[in-house]
Structure formats: C-alpha cells, structure tokens
Amino acid sequence: MTLLITVFAAIVATLVWYKKAPDNSMRYGTLALMYWGASLMWLVDAIFEYAELGAEFFTPEAADMLNDSYLGLCVVALGLIIWLVSLFIKDPKGIIRKTLLKKSV
C-alpha cells in the first residue's frame, strides 16, 4: 500500500509538473522526482519481499494493510513538507524575501 500510494503521489506530481512546464517557479519537478525515487526504492523492497513470501505477498492482513496505508499517507505528507521547505528556502518568486523586507521597513 505504501508503494501504491507513493506511486499515485508521483503520478499526480508529474502531471502537475507537466501541466505547468516550462514554468518551474513552484518546483513541482523536485516533488515528482522525490516521489519517483521513493517509489523505485519501495518497488525493489516489494520485489525482494515477493521473492521471500511468494503469492502471500498479495494477500496481506487487514491490519497490515491499514498500517501500510497510514504509513503511505504520512510519507506523502512528509514529501510535501520537504518540498515546501525547499521551496521556501529557494524562494524562486521572491515572495518570502519581499514579505520579510516589507515587515522590517
């Protein structure tokens, strides 16, 4: 479930990036690449788990599925927070800088 939720987040972020391209002022590309990186890593994890468990891998317990879904949502939220912090640090539109300068004047 964690892999699935991250893949969906990566697809949505990629679609948003594609819709806004070539304007990169919101750095959607960074968000999409982050989610794709995590998705690829979890895909490897899933393949190794499948090699160990076999068909049982596709029939998880309800409690495990719920826990994995909760983890997936938390991962998406953490990805968004990392992206937001990087956006504010880079401040491509200069909004943070302008706001701070206005307040100090």
Binding site: T2, T6, G29, T30, L33, M34, Y35, W36, G37, A38, S39, L40, M41, W42, L71, C74, V75, L78, G79, I82
Partner: peptide
C-alpha cells in the same frame, strides 16, 4: 533529487 528524496522517505519508513 531522486536519491535524496527516496532515501529520506525510506528513512522515515
């Protein structure tokens, strides 16, 4: 970005 993002999210897991 793929490596840092992926590693950070995996570390959280």
């Amino acid at each position: 970005k793929m490596l840092w993002g992926g590693s950070a999210l995996l570390a959280f897991e």
